[in-house]
């Protein structure tokens, strides 16, 4: 019994461990061979697996959409162009609805975020053991295939968006206008510290909530897939139950991955819109 619990715990831990490349305490660079070693590497390390899948999926999106873009015709669209156009129009409509200023970057950014995050989330639907098992055969000890379950990935995007909103806030309102927005409301200039505290929290909470929402949803989803996968080694009855559960959860998860990609995109548009507003 103890052996079994340990195995289950190890199984989960193994699934949640990234493939980390970084500097070992002795100064040399190598792949971490255990979770402890990975932890000891600190900031000077990189999650090769999530970085790879993130890059691969983003490039896949760019490739697939670029193929349509170079051959874009205003005549009768083919099947794939039709699909791409539907997505582009959907994103375009969202941007038109929420973004009132003029900035040519917002719509392409929204499209990139939506498609990219959707694809990253989609990796969750691949049965949790397939790719790690394949990697194991190829000699790779750890592999996490869903980039959006890595906070580095979600924070990487949300912090970049945060910096962009800061940039556009200062560009549109001027430094004075931006500082004024932070310090002179909602209580007027005599309650400056209170204003700064409230607005500061307001400002910082945007990127944090943006990335944690995506990360939390995908992490929880992946965790449930891992727990369901644990049932497969527990006898025929539980394995069949696990199969059914996995199917049900995958169907439900389809909704979540689309919704999370959509929410991330919409909030990014809204934040960019707020950055472009003179008064809010």
């Amino acid at each position: 019994m103890t052996q079994e619990t340990l195995t289950a715990g190890e199984y989960i831990k193994h699934h949640l461990q990234n493939l980390v490349y970084g500097r070992l305490p002795d100064g040399s660079w190598a792949f971490a061979s255990s979770p402890e070693q990975a932890k000891s590497m600190g900031f000077m390390s990189i999650n090769v697996d999530t970085m790879f899948f993130s890059f691969f999926l983003g490039a896949l999106f760019l490739f697939l959409f670029h193929r349509v873009a170079v051959r874009a015709t205003s005549g009768v669209p083919g099947g794939w162009q039709n699909f791409v156009e539907t997505v582009v129009e959907f994103v375009d409509r969202s941007v038109r609805d929420s973004f009132t200023s003029k900035n040519n970057m917002v719509a392409p950014m929204a499209l990139t975020l939506f498609a990219w995050i959707f694809l990253m989330n989609m990796m969750d639907l691949i049965p949790v053991d397939w790719l790690p098992r394949l990697a194991h055969v190829l000699g790779i000890p750890y592999l996490r295939v869903v980039p959006s379950t890595d906070p580095n990935i979600t924070f990487g995007m949300s912090i970049t968006i945060f910096l962009l909103t800061l940039y556009y806030s200062i560009k549109v309102k001027g430094l004075g206008g931006f500082v004024g927005e932070l310090t002179l409301q909602p209580f007027g200039k005599f309650a400056l510290p209170a204003n700064l505290l409230l607005e500061g929290v307001n400002l910082i909470s945007k990127p944090v909530s943006l990335s944690l929402r995506l990360f939390g949803n995908m992490y929880a989803g992946e965790m449930i897939f891992i727990l369901i996968a644990l049932l497969f080694s527990q006898g025929v009855l539980l394995a069949v139950t696990g199969g059914v559960l996995q199917w049900v959860w995958a169907v439900f998860h389809l909704l979540i991955i689309t919704l999370q990609a959509f929410i991330f995109m919409t909030l990014t548009i809204v934040y960019m819109d707020m950055a472009h507003q003179e008064h809010h």
């Binding site: 970057m105 392409p108 924070f155 990487g156």
Partner: peptide
């Protein structure tokens, strides 16, 4: 870790590409 920065750069490059050649 560094993945954060890597993802940021990737993100910016992808957005730029999308803005330039796809949208």
């Amino acid at each position: 870790n560094l993945t954060l920065i890597g993802q940021s750069i990737t993100f910016l490059v992808f957005v730029w590409f999308c803005m330039k050649f796809i949208w």
